[in-house]
Measured scan of single mutants.
Amino acid sequence: TTVHIGNVTYHFDNPEEAVKWAKEMAEKLGLRIEIHGDTIRVE
C-alpha cells in the first residue's frame, strides 16, 4: 500500500496501518485523503 503526500511516497506492508497513518497526517495538515485501491492520496 502506498501513501502519497505531495511529491513524497510512503510504502506500508499493512493497508490498515497505511489508512490510519494517512488519516492522522491529513488531520495534522488540514487535508483530506482519497483511497484508490491500494493507493492513498493526502491532498
Score class of each variant (00 low, 15 high):
1 T>R: 05
1 T>S: 07
1 T>K: 06
1 T>Q: 05
1 T>L: 07
1 T>V: 14
2 T>P: 03
2 T>R: 09
3 V>N: 00
3 V>A: 01
3 V>Q: 00
4 H>F: 13
4 H>Y: 14
4 H>A: 08
4 H>W: 14
5 I>W: 06
5 I>S: 02
5 I>L: 10
5 I>G: 01
5 I>F: 08
6 G>W: 10
6 G>I: 06
6 G>E: 08
6 G>P: 01
6 G>D: 08
6 G>Q: 08
6 G>M: 11
7 N>T: 10
7 N>S: 13
7 N>W: 11
7 N>L: 10
7 N>M: 11
7 N>R: 12
7 N>E: 09
7 N>A: 12
8 V>Y: 14
8 V>P: 00
8 V>D: 10
9 T>L: 10
9 T>H: 08
9 T>E: 10
9 T>P: 05
9 T>G: 05
9 T>R: 10
10 Y>H: 05
10 Y>K: 07
10 Y>L: 07
11 H>N: 06
11 H>T: 10
11 H>A: 06
11 H>C: 09
11 H>Y: 14
11 H>M: 09
12 F>L: 01
12 F>K: 00
12 F>N: 00
12 F>R: 00
13 D>C: 12
13 D>V: 10
13 D>Y: 07
13 D>E: 12
14 N>T: 10
14 N>M: 06
14 N>I: 08
14 N>G: 05
14 N>A: 06
15 P>S: 13
15 P>C: 09
15 P>E: 10
15 P>D: 06
15 P>A: 14
15 P>R: 15
16 E>M: 11
16 E>P: 04
16 E>R: 09
16 E>L: 11
16 E>C: 08
17 E>Q: 10
17 E>D: 12
18 A>L: 03
18 A>E: 00
18 A>M: 03
18 A>K: 00
18 A>Y: 02
19 V>Q: 07
19 V>E: 06
19 V>T: 07
19 V>N: 05
20 K>D: 06
20 K>C: 08
20 K>W: 07
20 K>F: 07
20 K>A: 13
20 K>G: 06
20 K>Q: 12
21 W>G: 00
21 W>F: 14
21 W>M: 03
21 W>L: 02
22 A>E: 00
22 A>N: 00
22 A>W: 02
22 A>S: 04
22 A>C: 04
23 K>M: 14
23 K>N: 09
23 K>C: 11
24 E>L: 13
24 E>Y: 15
24 E>Q: 12
24 E>R: 11
24 E>T: 10
24 E>I: 12
25 M>K: 04
25 M>D: 00
25 M>Q: 10
25 M>W: 06
25 M>G: 01
25 M>E: 05
26 A>E: 03
26 A>G: 05
26 A>F: 04
26 A>T: 03
26 A>M: 03
27 E>V: 07
27 E>G: 06
27 E>Q: 09
28 K>P: 04
28 K>S: 10
28 K>F: 11
28 K>E: 09
28 K>G: 06
28 K>D: 06
28 K>W: 11
29 L>V: 04
29 L>I: 05
29 L>Q: 05
29 L>P: 03
29 L>W: 08
30 G>C: 09
30 G>E: 05
30 G>F: 05
30 G>A: 05
30 G>I: 03
31 L>V: 10
31 L>W: 15
31 L>Y: 14
31 L>Q: 07
32 R>I: 15
32 R>N: 14
32 R>M: 14
32 R>W: 10
32 R>S: 15
33 I>Q: 02
33 I>C: 07
33 I>K: 00
34 E>F: 14
34 E>G: 04
34 E>N: 11
34 E>C: 14
34 E>P: 02
34 E>R: 13
35 I>Y: 11
35 I>S: 04
35 I>Q: 06
35 I>F: 11
36 H>V: 13
36 H>K: 12
36 H>G: 04
36 H>N: 12
37 G>S: 04
37 G>H: 05
38 D>M: 08
38 D>A: 11
38 D>G: 08
38 D>C: 06
38 D>V: 05
38 D>W: 03
38 D>K: 06
38 D>R: 06
40 I>S: 01
40 I>R: 01
40 I>M: 02
40 I>E: 01
40 I>H: 01
41 R>M: 12
41 R>W: 15
41 R>P: 01
42 V>I: 14
42 V>P: 02
42 V>Q: 02
42 V>L: 15
43 E>Y: 15
43 E>P: 05
43 E>K: 09
43 E>R: 09
43 E>V: 15
43 E>N: 10
43 E>L: 15
